[in-house]
Amino acid sequence: MNQKAIWTVIVALVITNCLSVVYFVTNQSGEKSAEKTVEATKPVVASGEEEVVATIGETSITRQQWLHELEDRYGKQILEGMIDEEVVRQMAKKHNIALSEDAVNRELTLIKTMYNTIDHEEINNEHWKEQIELSILLEELLTKDAVISEEEMKHFYEENKHLYEIPKSYHISHIVVKTKEAAEQVRDELENGSSFTALAMEKSTDEFSANRGGELGFVNAENGFAPESYLDIADKLKPNEWSKPIEVEGGFAVIILHEVIDAVTYSYADVKDQIKRQIAIDQMNGSISVEPFWKELDVKWFFENHQ
């Protein structure tokens, strides 16, 4: 799975799931949104039928005001994403396109191990599996009439075989501190129930990962995202278990293992359908979009008359 293939999946995920994007945008801008809303809202006294969701001094923000603001800011994007998802499902059913669980799990594994910059702390496997399924269904719909020769697909596989060979990979986070004593103190706090993520944000000297709670994503011997010592120690840990202090450049580290993915090599038969979709999409030279199917299903929506 090359970088273009990875971006194909990510683009399709965005198209078919605007809800996730809105969720994170809303979280990150929530305080600013509330602040602007308060500035624009004159002091009100909520009636008995209006639920107050915030009070600032003598000013109240009601649920109705809040929901109206959300609809104005994100309503069209959310509704479009919901329609896209349903369109993909209905079109897949119409054309008898179904996916095996193995195909979805394989795509999830490839994404998690190869697209390392995903914030894995926010990944919920069931949620991502659902979005990957929608992504593959959309690709299948767009390429269902494509004719790709067996020879071309086999050539693609042989040329890119290394992309389908996943080394044993470890999803880890770390906390880096200056001294061994400080690392031992981190371990003591973890033993007493402190959050690894919170401690990393508070104490870690690794600026790259500290603001992500120490998150390093999936690391392995090939991608070079972590020292070899991390891999050796991670191999001896159980999921959700943290290590003893590890000496690293600039101090000592404590790592925690989240998940292990065993080494796997996918055969041509395993990825044949994926290769067909990828070649066909490359040949299309266009964007991946659900829009062409809206007319086929006669989609009508609120914003048709509210542009």
Rank of each mutant, 00 (worst) to 15 (best):
E150Y: 11
V147K: 15
E140Y: 07
E159R: 09
K129C: 14
A226K: 04
H155C: 04
N116Y: 12
E184H: 10
S209N: 12
M114P: 00
K161V: 13
G214K: 03
N220P: 06
R212H: 03
G224K: 06
N160Q: 07
L110S: 02
A200I: 05
A98N: 11
G224F: 08
H162G: 11
L190D: 05
V176K: 09
E159P: 05
D119Y: 09
D119S: 03
Y157V: 02
D188V: 03
T143Q: 01
T117V: 13
S169F: 01
L142N: 02
F208H: 15
V186L: 07
E207H: 12
I148L: 11
E191K: 13
R106V: 01
E191V: 09
E151F: 08
G213T: 08
M114F: 05
L163S: 12
E228I: 07
I111A: 02
K161Q: 13
K112Q: 11
L190G: 10
S169A: 09
E107L: 15
A226R: 01
K112M: 10
L163R: 15
E215D: 08
V176L: 14
N220L: 02
I97V: 05
L99N: 10
F208G: 10
F208Q: 12
P167N: 02
H155G: 12
A210D: 02
L141P: 12
I97F: 02
L142S: 12
F156R: 14
V104Q: 07
Y157A: 07
E184Q: 14
I148F: 04
D119Q: 03
T109E: 11
A183T: 00
V186G: 03
K178I: 10
E207P: 00
H127L: 14
K94C: 02
I175M: 09
A98L: 02
K161A: 15
N160I: 04
I136M: 01
S204T: 06
A98G: 08
G224L: 04
E165Q: 15
S100G: 15
M114V: 10
N105V: 02
E202R: 13
S229G: 05
N105A: 09
L141C: 06
A182H: 10
S209P: 04
Y164Q: 01
G217F: 06
S149L: 05
W128F: 14
N223E: 08
K161S: 13
S100I: 08
L110Q: 06
I166T: 05
K112A: 12
E159S: 15
E165V: 15
L99F: 00
V176T: 00
F208V: 11
V186D: 03
S195C: 11
H174Y: 01
L138H: 00
E184R: 08
A146H: 00
Q131F: 07
V177C: 12
E126A: 12
D102R: 11
R187W: 07
T113C: 14
A221D: 13
E158I: 07
Y164E: 00
T113M: 09
E228Y: 02
H171D: 15
G193P: 01
N192G: 07
S195G: 06
H174S: 12
A198M: 08
L108K: 09
I172P: 14
S100P: 01
Y157I: 02
A92K: 06
